[in-house]
Simulated scan of single mutants.
Amino acid sequence: MKLGVFAVLFAQKPFEEALDYIASKGLEAVEIGTGGYPGDAHCKPDELLADAGKLKAFKQAVESRGLIISALSCHANPLHPQKALAQADDATIRKTIELANRLEVPVVNTFSGCPGDHEDAKYPNWPVAPWPNDYQEILKWQWEQKVIPYWSDINNVATEAGVKIGLELHGGFSVHSPATLLRLREATGKAIGANLDPSHMWWQGIDPVQAIRILGRADAIHHFHAKDTTIDPVNVNMHGVTDMQSYTQMLDRAWQFRSVGFGHDLKTWADIISELRLVGYDYVVSIEHEDGLMSVEEGFSKAVQNLQQVLIREPLGEMWWV
């Protein structure tokens, strides 16, 4: 496995300065934002696709520092009921797939998106209860009319480009759990898989180790984010796991994102890394920092220190004792 980072953490730094900093920490990979929610501070798809010289220089800037690009990421909502928003996000995803093909990057990460509840809706509607039955009707319409048709097309586009799609299982979007990811993959194609982030499993009450086992058996893990979560044992009884308070209300929230090792101990993270190896995932573990108690530099550095202790780097050898 290789240790990497989602480089949008360092969007305020010039691209090559950010790469120097990342390489100085002993990392081997970068995940780069190309638009959508992560922004495109370090990577402008239109510019790179239009200029072969800029494309070559971009790739060389990464490779000259001993790094690889693990994924291009454009997390967005291409199913947004407001058509202008959906079209812009769809265009970003398609350009990112094309750019990944040109850069020989194997994975594009994004969200599944979430539609509204009918054709004239203005806002996404995320059904999370089977009753009243209205929610079942909304869910059926969303999947049959929006989710499956859209991602069937993108699966074909990605397959043609030789690129995999890593959907982050994130609350608020149609694909947010192992079951919803596998449902979409079954309906669309094998280019669709997970960008698995344990932090979103924990707050939903899902054991990430078991999520890895479920998705790994289906060969459905295309990329992996390293981020932690802590559940407040008092506040969760007040607000539940679907707590709608701002992330800034850390003292009162039911759960919050933390840097690796500050929500769960290193034995838990060792179990996660071991399970990834067990199901055959030997690609990049990409650090994502969204810890409201630490600066970017400190949260990132501590995540690196903690993951370095549990990451399994070397290829499997013979079982000499068998």
Score class of each variant (00 low, 15 high):
Phe10Gln: 03
Gly172Asn: 08
Ala11Leu: 02
Arg183Val: 04
Trp126Gly: 04
Phe15Met: 06
Glu17Asp: 15
Val62Pro: 07
Ile68Trp: 02
Met319Thr: 11
Leu251Phe: 13
Thr268Glu: 11
Gln249Lys: 12
Lys190Cys: 01
Gly66Lys: 06
Leu48Cys: 02
Asn109Trp: 02
Asp291Trp: 12
Gly216Val: 05
Ser70Tyr: 07
Arg102Ser: 13
Gly292Glu: 12
His289Asn: 07
Thr159Gly: 15
Leu85Lys: 14
Ala129Arg: 14
Tyr281His: 13
Trp126Asn: 06
Arg94Ile: 13
Asn109Arg: 00
Val157Pro: 09
Leu48Gly: 01
Asp46Val: 05
Asn237Val: 00
Val209Pro: 08
Glu318Ile: 14
Arg102Ile: 06
Pro115His: 06
Lys227Val: 01
Leu182Glu: 08
Asn237Ala: 07
Thr110Lys: 00
Leu169Ile: 02
Asn237Ser: 02
Gln210Pro: 00
Ile32Asn: 01
Gln256Pro: 03
Gly4Asp: 03
Met1Ile: 09
Phe58Trp: 13
Phe224His: 07
Ala270Ile: 00
Asn77Ser: 05
Pro106Trp: 06
Gln12Trp: 14
Gln308Lys: 15
Tyr283Trp: 15
Ala41Lys: 13
Val236Glu: 08
Asp134Thr: 12
Ile93Met: 12
Ala220Ser: 12
Asp51Ser: 11
Leu278Ile: 02
Phe173Met: 12
Asp197Trp: 09
Gly261Gln: 03
Leu9Trp: 04
Lys54Asp: 09
Ala187Trp: 08
Ile97Met: 02
Tyr281Ala: 05
Val62Gln: 03
Thr34Ile: 00
Val322Lys: 14
Gly172Val: 07
Tyr281Ile: 05
Val234Asp: 11
Phe173Gln: 03
Leu48Pro: 00
Phe111Lys: 02
Asn306Tyr: 04
Gln204Lys: 14
Ala220Cys: 10
Lys227Asn: 06
Leu181Ala: 11
His264Val: 00
Pro106Asp: 09
Lys56Val: 07
Ala129Trp: 12
Glu28Asp: 15
Glu98Pro: 00
Thr34Ser: 08
Ala88Leu: 03
Lys164Gln: 15
Gln308Asp: 14
Pro127Met: 06
Ile273Asn: 02
Gly162Glu: 08
Ala23Leu: 10
Phe173Gly: 02
Leu72Phe: 11
Glu119Thr: 08
Glu104Thr: 11
His118Asn: 15
Leu103Glu: 06
Ser177His: 15
Lys56Asp: 14
Ala161Leu: 07
Gln245Pro: 00
His80Asp: 11
Leu182His: 12
Asn306Ile: 01
Ala91Gly: 03
Thr180Met: 09
Leu19Cys: 12
Ala52Pro: 04
Met238Trp: 10
Val296Met: 15
Lys95Thr: 00
Ile272Gly: 02
Ser112Phe: 07
Glu298Gln: 13
Asp291Pro: 13
Ala86Ile: 08
Leu3Phe: 09
Leu184Pro: 08
Arg313Ile: 02
Pro115Tyr: 08
Asn155Ser: 11
Leu48Val: 03
Gln204Arg: 14
Arg277Thr: 04
Gln245Asp: 13
Gln210Ile: 13
Ala86Leu: 07
Ala100Leu: 09
